[in-house]
């Protein structure tokens, strides 16, 4: 579904990504871990070009999205994103947060969009918050709404950028539960996270990044139990 080849990104002289090559197949849950500054968030943000790559190519569903003429807005509709800071629209109700993009971009009628949104809210356990405003929600609730908002566009895959890092510890579980359910239902997901237990349990594949390159990748259980590269060993010994 996604192919990344020789992906590079630098800010001025500072090279953050030094050539990333990987492939993600449909339905796969890829978890990206690594020390801070390893480039894992930048990698994720290059996939939907929130960061402009400085080199390499990315193909998504057969289209090269690193090409100048690619219809980025169209591609992004198929590729949701969930942010560390939730980034809900504070001037809109939860319902409006969920229905704005589908109505404007997919020409859904108001009723149609609302119906889908209510279904999604139910699936994240927040159907009673439809008319609430983001300010009145807890962090865990906000993030579940943000996931529902991404799902409302019916994307083929979702990128998660440290979705639980800004949450109070007691709220991490409720968000991870929603993500687990998504994974089980076959959603293609790329997840940058510090939740090692989650990575091990839910990930189909683990990518360990350090210094702007993929140091090691493979089956999460295998890597957690028996890391091959010294840098992976070092990192895991610190976080586990």
């Amino acid at each position: 579904m996604i192919r990344v080849s020789g992906l590079r990104k630098s800010y001025g002289k500072n090279e953050i990504l030094k050539g990333i090559d990987t492939e993600i197949t449909k339905g796969e849950v890829v978890v990206v871990i690594g020390p801070s500054g390893s480039g894992k968030s930048t990698f994720l943000r290059c996939i939907n070009r929130l960061e402009e790559p400085t080199g390499g190519q990315i193909w998504f569903e057969g289209q090269e999205l690193t090409e100048k003429q690619s219809d980025l807005n169209r591609i992004r509709q198929r590729m949701g994103m969930v942010f560390q800071q939730f980034n809900l629209f504070p001037h809109m109700s939860v319902m409006e947060n969920l229905t704005l993009a589908p109505r404007k971009l997919k020409n859904q009628s108001k009723d149609q969009a609302k119906k889908i949104a209510l279904e999604l809210l139910k699936s994240v356990g927040l159907e009673d918050k439809a008319s609430a405003y983001p300010d009145s929600l807890s962090g865990g609730q906000k993030q579940r709404i943000a996931i529902a908002r991404a799902l409302a566009m019916e994307p083929a895959m979702i990128l998660f950028d440290e979705p639980t890092s800004a949450l109070d510890p007691e709220m991490v579980g409720e968000v991870l539960d929603v993500m687990k359910r998504l994974a089980k239902n076959g959603m293609t997901m790329v997840i940058v996270t510090h939740e090692m237990g989650f990575a091990r349990e839910v990930g189909d594949r683990l990518i360990f990044m350090d210094g702007g390159v993929i140091v090691e990748e493979g089956d999460p259980r295998a890597i957690f139990e028996n890391p091959q590269h010294p840098r992976t060993k070092d990192f895991l010994s610190k976080v586990l």
Binding site: N48, R76, M79, G80, M81, F83, Q85, N87, F89, A101
Partner: peptide
Amino acid sequence: DKGQAEAARSLGM
């Protein structure tokens, strides 16, 4: 906040 524009753009707006 920059995240607002990023969220909107990530939805395809």
